[in-house]
Design a protein around this nucleic acid. Structure first.
Lengths: 135, 135
DNA sequence: GCGCTAACTGGTAATCATTACCGGTAGGCT
DNA sequence: AGCCTACCGGTAATGATTACCAGTTAGCGC
């Protein structure tokens, strides 16, 4: 019979742990560097691989910063529930926010223009209370 | 005395024309290919250069597709007026939309979380009326 | 029209993040 | 213990964007 569909490996956990302790969004390269510097080395390919499968599994969210960098963040237990993020552009702290009003608005606007199958991206970037105070 | 701060060159116009006739969003590579195929060749470096300066001048908008590609589009006469886009993911047709309600919502949410200096990205992707009908 | 100078051009090399390959490793089952 | 297969991870490849830099040219004064 075929072995388990999904093996549990040291590296798999390491990547997830890194995301957990990171707290906010971080790039694949960040995860790689973090693991490496804490002696828990994992191959770069492997990091990308796990990140990708976590995304597919809906366990992490992905956003592209305005600079075009792809960042990942461990999110919502089961990946259900569409939501957006309010990210501090200095410390990376992230707040999850819901925007039912926006979803509705988006759907309405799209319909007005005759568009179907609408999807959207929405991210807020700012400076969190602490970073604001620190100036 | 120093010559004009900004020269007008064949290539500069070519890039702008390409964006104009493209109508929707297109990547730098697309512009390059388009110009090249219509015999109006312009160096790739030059395309990027002009695209960048047009962005700086506020004459074109930039958005990153979910796939991470950077696309450009000639927009708003003088670059004034913050707005968003409703892009057809099949034909690229783009509608400019305003979302005062969203702007306001974003500001409110951010304030609630103590964030300042808030900025945001918002793009809608869908299938336009025509492409919808074509299925 | 002529010449000058600085801005512009464009081919090539360099960067950077991400993906593809592929021989080697090691879970998990029997 | 032994096998089968998914998983690892170093390296090469890719693709978009930027940096360099020598050659070209627009625009100004004469």
């Amino acid at each position: 019979m075929a072995p388990a569909r999904q093996r549990s490996t040291r590296q798999g956990g390491a990547v997830k742990d890194a995301l957990t302790s990171a707290g906010g969004f971080c790039s694949a390269q960040d995860v790689y560097a973090a693991l490496r510097s804490q002696g828990d080395a994992v191959g770069l390919s492997t990091v990308y691989r796990h990140l990708q499968s976590l995304v597919d599994a809906g366990q992490v969210d992905v956003i592209h910063t305005p600079e075009g960098e792809t960042t990942y963040r461990l999110c919502g237990e089961a990946g259900q529930g569409h939501h957006h993020h309010l990210v501090c552009r200095e410390c990376g702290r992230t707040a999850e926010i819901e925007g039912r009003a926006v979803e509705k608005w988006a759907a309405t606007v799209a319909a007005e223009h005759g568009y179907t199958d609408v999807d959207h991206t929405l991210e807020l970037f700012g400076r969190c209370a602490e970073c604001s105070a620190a100036r």
